[in-house]
Write a protein that binds this DNA or RNA. Sequence first.
DNA 1: ACCAGTATCAGCCAAAAGGTGGAGAGACCA
DNA 2: TGGTCTCTCCACCTTTTGGCTGATACTGGT
Lengths: 208, 208
Amino acid sequence: MTSISVVLVDDHTVVRSGLKALLGTQADIAVVGEAASGEEALEAAQQHAPDVVLMDLAMGTGMDGIEAIKQLRQRTPKQAVIVFTTYDSDADIVRAVDAGAMGYLLKDAAPEEIFAAVRGAVQGKSVMSAPVASRLFQQLRNPDEILTPREAELLSLLTEGLSNRDLGKRLFISEATVKTHLAHIYAKLGVETRAAAIATAIRREGMR
Amino acid sequence: MTSISVVLVDDHTVVRSGLKALLGTQADIAVVGEAASGEEALEAAQQHAPDVVLMDLAMGTGMDGIEAIKQLRQRTPKQAVIVFTTYDSDADIVRAVDAGAMGYLLKDAAPEEIFAAVRGAVQGKSVMSAPVASRLFQQLRNPDEILTPREAELLSLLTEGLSNRDLGKRLFISEATVKTHLAHIYAKLGVETRAAAIATAIRREGMR
DNA sequence: ACCAGTATCAGCCAAAAGGTGGAGAGACCA
DNA sequence: TGGTCTCTCCACCTTTTGGCTGATACTGGT
């Protein structure tokens, strides 16, 4: 059989060379291109027509990973995209899967896990790191906690530290509406104060 | 001249191999050992006696990077430690420099920057990525913003989303005292509400 | 001995946030 | 068409927060 061609997308030089070295040890996997940004990724995917795109979500500047995935899925639907990132934030996982990612690996994944994901991806199998899978599972299990788009927007602004009045101005809605949304958000997040909402929101959105 | 020996410490396999590949291109730099945790780092430093230790701060489990730096500085003071990490949080930078780090690089640093840091470190020069340097500079320029230990403790609990009453109970002080501390914290952080304080606190402590 | 910094507490008042209950409009789906 | 979801808004009331002023006490350094 012919070997699996892969394009790497990551703005960290060291991560790219690390992955390249790692994947290079496998006879059936060949890195055919690299990119340091979303824009470059689209180019590289077009030019090299790889079987798999291994992509970091956090790109320093320009198009972010999620947007890049969407574009890739549109332009070259046959290429499988695997997310390879440092953090397992709920929002990122859901958005990546939504955008059409075939797998979701964390950077501390064991080499074998990475190889398995690449090989699985070309066969249409989706592979994800254990912590990622459990997060995703929780999301599905608990649909009550899913915020509406408007609520999510509000919550995101909330984490900037804005007051109700400011939130209203920013979103062109009355303070009353802001309070209504907030009440719903608190209920869904299981908190009672905006302080706690901010805390859980920020922690859910990354790190940990 | 003899080449500079380096030990790499990072819990991500790909980052280690990437760095190794990158440093391997330089004739005067040789990677003599690797470690995936703080504990392993101490061992490797002892065993290989490198000139430079390149270390990530975030280690999945066990001893964290800061603690590892402190121990290294004590045991093998001649070895220069360079921090090589993803994020430039104020707290991490200050603590790392405090612990005795000779340099502070971000993972998106250009290869040349990394080489320069390694070469500089053995000569006693400290090299840090531009964003890191500017952060550090701000810290020094603005001593007003340094929180007292008690205030920092309060702020940290604040980010859990506690109310003033709860904060008082947790710290065994009256609500009045809590309010006093909070007022001071707000002034130092340059915010007016607890929501904004939480937001800036969490963002300063990492990510972004 | 004095001063600066820190930590503790109080009271008062205005502003902001949260709780409750209700309501209309548009979208979407069965 | 009827039901559900989402977004929008309102009024009333209680609780929480923040701003202000002032006070005591312990510490460490000059």
